[in-house]
Each structure stands twice: as C-alpha cells, then as structure tokens.
Nucleic acid binder design. Structure first.
Lengths: 339, 339
DNA sequence: CTTGCGGCTGTAATCGATTACTGGCATCCT
DNA sequence: AGGATGCCAGTAATCGATTACAGCCGCAAG
C-alpha cells in the first residue's frame, strides 16, 4: 500500500506538505503540482483509518433504523444519503429491529468507530444515547420523540391522524375505527389522538372499542381487522396509522371482499361488510387500485434531508441549543397513484 | 475519553497486559480480573479506529447494494446482518442506484476505511473491484455474475424463469409474454432464457415480440403491459422476471380490469382482456389477493447468509480458489400468502 | 549450583496521517 | 540598517491500540 511518505519522497517534499496539498492548505503551486502528480502516478489515497485516528472522527455518518425493510425508512435513508454525499460524507445503515440491545450495539459501534455523527430513529423514548451526547458526538433523532435534549425532527403526528380521519368523515363515513401502533411509541399515540380529536370535532363518537393497538407491521393491520369486525355495531371505516398496518388492512379486505369501499352509502352490493380505509403514510408497492383509499402522504425522504442538514451543522461545530423541528407534509390525497 | 493506558494504570499493569486480556491471550488470572474490574469501573471500550489502524482492518463489513428500497435487497441485508453479527462483525449498507460512480465511491470508502470485507450486488458484469482484490481484501459478489475471479453467489436464474413459465403453461396459458430487465444484467437475460426454454419444451412459440426488456422497477412492469397488449395476437399471460416488475404488472392490471386471471378459459366475463401473471420473486407488501398469481419465491435472506458465510471464511484467511455458488430456492407456489 | 526453557509481563516500536512548532527567507516599516 | 511580520516547509509529536522483543522468574534437568 502506498503511504503518504511514498508520495512525499516521489514529489521531493515532506509528508506535511503532501498532507497540506491534499487538504487544501496553502502550498507553493509548483510543489502542489508535484504532489498531485505523485499522487496520480502512485494511485495514492489516504488511509481513512489513520486520518480518523488523528482527526478524532471519520467522514461516515451512521443512520440507525428500526426496520430497513420498511419502505418508509428506506426512503428516509435516501434523503440522508443524498444530503450527506453532497457534503462529502458517506452513510452507513444499521438495523435495530426496534430492539434496545441491537440499538445499543450499533450506537456503540458508531462511537467506537469515531463516526462523525448519528441519525437515529429510536425504538423508544429513552434510547441509550447518553454516552454519545456526553462525548460531544453529533446526534439527531428522527420520527419519534425522545426525552433527551438533542436535535429532533418529527412529523406533526396528531395533525396527520386528524387529517386522515377528517377526510374519511368528509366522505360520509360515520363509525370510524383506528388501528395504531404500540402505546410506547409516540407516533402511534399522537396519531390516535388526532383520530379522536377529528371525530369529536365532527360530533361523532370516538368509541374506545374502535381503537386497536396493534404493531406497526403488516400482520398487525391484518389481524386487527378481525377484531374490529367483531365489534357491534361494526365500524364502517378504519384508519391505519402507518403504512404497513395499512397494507395489512387492505390485504385483509382484499381476501375477504375484494377491497375497500369508496364511500359508505347504498352501494353495498358486494357480499358482507366493506370498510372505508384511511392510511397515514404511502402504500409501498401496492398491487391493487388505491383510488378508494384515503392516503395522507408522508415525505420520509425530506425528513431524511432535514435531519442530515441538522447533523451536518452539528458536525461543523454548531453548538446552538437543541432544536425540535416539525417536518412539513402535503395534505392528504385521494386516489393518486405513485407509479 | 478513557484510553487503554487509563485502564492499565487503574489496574496496576501495562497497556500490553490490558490489551492481552481484552483479546483473550494468556494472562495471570488475578491480573486479568483486575483489568476487567478496571474496564468495568471506567466503562472503557477500545477505540476501534486505533485498533483498525494497527490490525490493518476493522470489524465492519460493507454490503453494497443497487437499491435499498427494493425489499429483495433489504431481505438480503437481513441475512448478511444476522450472520455477521453472530461472528462479531457489524454490517453497513451502501446504496449505489446501479450507478458505477456511486458503486466505485463506496467500494473506495470500504477500502480506505479498512473494512474487513465487501459483499457486492454489482451494477454490471465488470464492477470496479480490481483494486480491492489486488490488495487482498475479501470480496463476495451476489445476485449477478461478474467476470472477476471472486466468490459469487447467485440463483439459478434460468431455472427460475423456466419454472415460472412452466407453471403458467400448466395452468393452461398458451401465449405467454415475458417482461424482463435490461440486457446488461445477467439475471434478466438468464431468466428470459428460462422463459424461452420452457415455452419450447411445451411446444409453444417464444415469439420475440412477446419479450420486453424493461427496467427492473415498478414503472418498468407497469408500462410494459401497455406495449404487450398492443401486440397481436395479444398474450394471454405474462411473466415478470423480478418482484418490482411484477408489482407494476399487477397494479396495471388492477387499474385496467381488476386484477390477474386465475386461468385462461371461458371465465372472461369481465371487461376486456385479462392476463395470467407469473412473477419471479416474492411480492412485497401486496395489497391484493395474490392467489391468482404464480409466484416463484426467492430466499434473499438465505442468499445473504450464504454470502456472509463465504466472506467470513475469506476474512479468516481462507485462500481457497474462488467459488461460484448457486443459492437453492423452493419450488414455485400458487396462492400462498405471506402475511 | 548452573543452564535451559517456558510462561508472563513490560517497554517501546509500530500502524499512517495530521499538525504544533520551529526556522528560513522575503517583504515592509521606521 | 535593523527589526517586525508573514508565508511556507520540514521535523517531530501525536492520535490509541497492538505486538515484537527483551527481561524476569521459577522449575527441572544436568
């Protein structure tokens, strides 16, 4: 492997000069040219491990996610990646399965590897980031709120639940159920709160029997439908508060009756009850028509860009007080299909 | 930050002894205990950058993928991750968008960061891994064949195309089209070859007009349907040779006529032509019934585990000749739904 | 008693790049 | 002219862990 000293010798200068050329400091032009020639001839590229050791941090940022198989998070990743690459940083993804032990492990790796910073979508409200923060590493939390005093970027989850529910009300649905995530995640709770508020606003009942805490995965939505259809009186619509639960709902309805209902009134010609469906978040890879579904779209990519922006500021040395940003979203849409 | 020398002082030993304890060499038990106590009290964890600099490689492996938004590849990532974690390695994901420049960049990062090894799903048959290989870094290529003499794990793509096509033939379809990926990717070409062979075997024509080279994304499948329905005579079924193209096909059919056809004969009661559908690969997050679709499932997670196994052997020092493995898959299934 | 050997431990070199510090040289001011 | 100032380049210290090497001790054999 060629080292900096090889380049230095070939260019007839010292290692310090080579380093300076490579890092854009002031060096006499002819020496700089000689160095660049030598670099080119030898195909030299600096060893980042050594550089990181000396600089105290690398040019890699860690993106720690609960589930890289959820398209929501992969879209976040794209946003982070695009913003980071532009600034000369590389992004590595780590997958926690919403498990604290894996989360802790990857945060530890990020620290021990001296990564420049971490963007974390936490498993719960108190992720183990204390050590990182104390050591002055840059951390940005996304998607779910935490109790730590660090930069955070989330959606206005109450508003998301509210808007989705209101759109269902506007379509004429009256008895609207809600399938949300575990009570430990702020997104699940906040979106359900929006659902409740929207019903109250419309003078409808937010029957506790119509609120189901499932998981935020496909099977959660799929199974919750069974529970809800057992209620009496049964709901005429259902809100799924995340994308995967929405997939589960739609799949369950497709299996039972062919799909969701566009509007409540008389067109109940098909066999058995058919539900109106609302979803917070985009449906990934839908294989059915989605024009009957109320979708409140999110823009996870933008969330990623925003978070990366905050993180890069921190890495550059900003010590402003911790910021809590709300990522703006579009209003809901109905029947728009993202091919 | 606590360093190894802090631990050494606290335990009353030298740094060498601390290092030896931490790396499992022989040390007098009472000293070892003292070191471990000191480590615990100080909350010491070794700086991996420094370790990597000395050891010449880190305990991180890079998984370089064309598209982390494709569930096929995220499933691969899970497999790699599980296998690697068990062996004490961490995995970082890199996303290339099938672009050579991003691929080259991330491979460069992996090298410069002295990562232990790389698992690569290449953008084309000649990825820029020459430098890595020369330097003796461990590399395993997955999913698509390359010309380099390195370990490779792929599926038997011809067989996959063959089996899917045969299943459609068995259902009674006779004029089966094929939507495959770009001619530059071996998977697209090989699966199409399987389609052709299966038709010949069945005494059917593999009309070139029925073979469409699209991209391997949703829009590719979606748009290809339009092309195919313009052919005359029109096909009565279509094979999508990857998961996302399959999604595009199903979505297009849902938009046009409500979905795929279970079998060709008389039940053409719906409006207009309805196609039988076969897909190589699982349908991610399907929101429709999939019982009418012939699916030849893949096991990307296993592919990841296999690749990680090969890589870990290499990292451990194996210098066996390059291996080319075929990842086994289950046979096709029809109408099974993975919730 | 001496020599030899094996098992531990400590000292210091090492990995490769960055950068504080020092000194040489030229320019500029009084 | 003499001194101050600034710019650049080179030398060597530095980041933190690993490990080659050397030294020490104890035991066994001669």
């Amino acid at each position: 492997m060629t080292r900096i000293i090889d380049v230095a010798r070939r260019a007839g200068v010292s290692t310090a000069t080579v380093s300076r050329v490579l890092n854009g400091k002031n060096v006499r032009p002819e020496l700089a040219a000689a160095v660049r020639d030598a670099v080119g001839e030898l195909g030299y590229s600096p060893d980042r491990t050594a550089r990181s050791l000396r600089r105290r941090h690398s040019e890699v940022i860690a993106l720690v996610l609960p589930d890289v198989e959820n398209p929501f998070f992969t879209a976040v990743a794209r946003g982070v990646e695009d913003a980071a690459l532009e600034a000369g940083y590389s992004v590595v993804l780590c997958n926690t399965d919403d498990r604290r032990d894996k989360e802790e492990r990857y945060l530890g790796v990020a620290d021990d590897e001296n990564m420049a910073g971490v963007i974390l979508a936490p498993a719960d409200a108190t992720p183990p980031i204390g050590r990182l923060v104390e050591r002055g590493r840059s951390v940005v939390v996304i998607d779910r709120r935490v109790t730590h005093d660090v930069d955070q970027v989330t959606f206005d989850n109450r508003a998301l639940g509210f808007r989705a529910t209101k759109a269902l009300v506007d379509r004429g649905f009256r008895r609207i159920a809600c399938i949300t995530g575990p009570e430990t995640t702020s997104t699940a709770v906040d979106r359900a709160e929006g659902w409740r508020d929207a019903l109250h606003d419309a003078g409808l009942v937010a029957d506790d029997g119509l609120l189901v805490h499932a998981n935020f995965r496909v099977d959660g939505g799929y199974e919750a439908i069974g529970t809800l259809l057992g209620r009496s009186p049964a709901p005429d619509a259902v809100l799924a508060t995340n994308n995967l639960a929405g997939v589960g709902v739609l799949r369950a309805l497709a299996d039972r009756h062919g799909g969701p209902a566009p509007a409540p009134a008389g067109d109940d010609g098909s066999a058995g009850p058919v539900l109106g469906v609302g979803v917070v978040g985009d449906l990934p890879f839908a294989t059915s028509r989605t024009s009957d579904v109320v979708i409140v779209p999110l823009n996870p990519r933008d969330l990623g860009v925003t978070a990366a922006g905050l993180l890069l500021e921190r890495i550059a040395g900003s010590d402003a007080p911790a910021r809590q940003l709300i990522q703006e979203t579009e209003d809901h849409r109905e029947g728009v299909r993202p091919v």
